[in-house]
Simulated scan of single mutants.
Amino acid sequence: MHDKNKALYDYLISHANEITDEWLGKRKYSKNSVYSLEKDADYLRKTNQWVIQILSSSLLDAPNTIIELNEWAQKTASERVRTDTPIYEVIHQFKVFRNVFWDKIHSFVNDTTLQITPSDIIEWEKKINSTLDEVIERFTESYNEITTTRLVAQEALINELSSPIIPIAHEIGVLPLIGVIDTKRAKYIMESTLQQCTSLKISRLFIDLSGVAIMDTMVAQEIFQVIQTLKLIGVETTLSGIRPEVAQTAVNLGIDFSNLSISSTLQQALMDLHLTANKKT
């Protein structure tokens, strides 16, 4: 069996260019796809021949196959993420390549003078398909890990940009909140607000909710917790811009605004602060 495996290995390696050409020849025009027919095939050719080497080596139980497989998966996944290639496109190309690869194995069976038995083919099927499945699994794991890391970084950046405290006077700042606030973002707002108030030496903060269309009980509790926590570090807080529908929902949910400093609009809140300041002078 070893001689037959070695013969098939040699055959596949010697026909690696043909296998790659046949796979590339099945490409179609696809807008913004790395696999599109008009795209430069040099990188695709290189990575495909790497896969051929990995699959062929599995016939010989090569000790470095797993190492090569992991390296290919990480590098290729990184490139596919960088080019924004959807995972379904990659899986489709694996399917196309699998068929091309097995067609070449069938050609070997027809061309060779060796006596190939059904058990030989079954053994090859186990080794090759198992290795290819492992390639796909490792690739998707790497792809998911890279995209998840990217999404987490992007989410952190979006949260940071969407929760800035704007200093408007000595020790006075405004925190305009916009969009949907879920529990996760509300917790981020708390952490960020505390850090920013401390670093900016804010003692009076206006939290404007005019850009928030929906507020449920969990989010309201998080915002109230922000206010209470700010109070503990000496920051006086005023809410402004609560939409009527948000206020109605809050009332229906039994949320108590009585102990909070509230203004109808941010403009009014700032005017009130100016008037109060004038009266003290």
Rank of each mutant, 00 (worst) to 15 (best):
A73M: 03
A73G: 09
Q74Y: 09
T76M: 04
T76A: 10
A77F: 01
S78Y: 07
S78L: 09
S78E: 15
R80A: 03
V81D: 02
T83E: 15
T83G: 01
T83W: 08
T85V: 11
P86L: 03
I87M: 06
I87R: 01
E89K: 00
H92S: 06
Q93V: 01
F94S: 06
K95I: 14
K95Y: 12
F97W: 08
F97Y: 11
R98V: 01
R98W: 00
N99F: 05
V100H: 00
V100W: 00
V100Q: 01
V100D: 00
W102A: 05
W102T: 07
K104T: 07
S107H: 09
S107P: 03
N110F: 12
D111E: 14
D111K: 09
T112G: 09
T113R: 07
T113Q: 11
L114C: 05
L114M: 15
Q115K: 10
S119N: 11
I121T: 14
I122K: 13
W124T: 11
W124C: 08
E125R: 05
E125G: 09
K126N: 11
I128L: 13
I128A: 04
N129L: 14
S130C: 07
S130Y: 07
T131W: 00
L132Y: 13
D133C: 02
V135L: 13
E137N: 11
R138I: 01
F139E: 03
E141Y: 12
E141W: 05
S142A: 15
Y143F: 15
N144D: 13
N144R: 11
N144V: 14
N144Q: 12
T147P: 02
T147G: 02
T148F: 05
V152A: 08
V152L: 10
V152K: 12
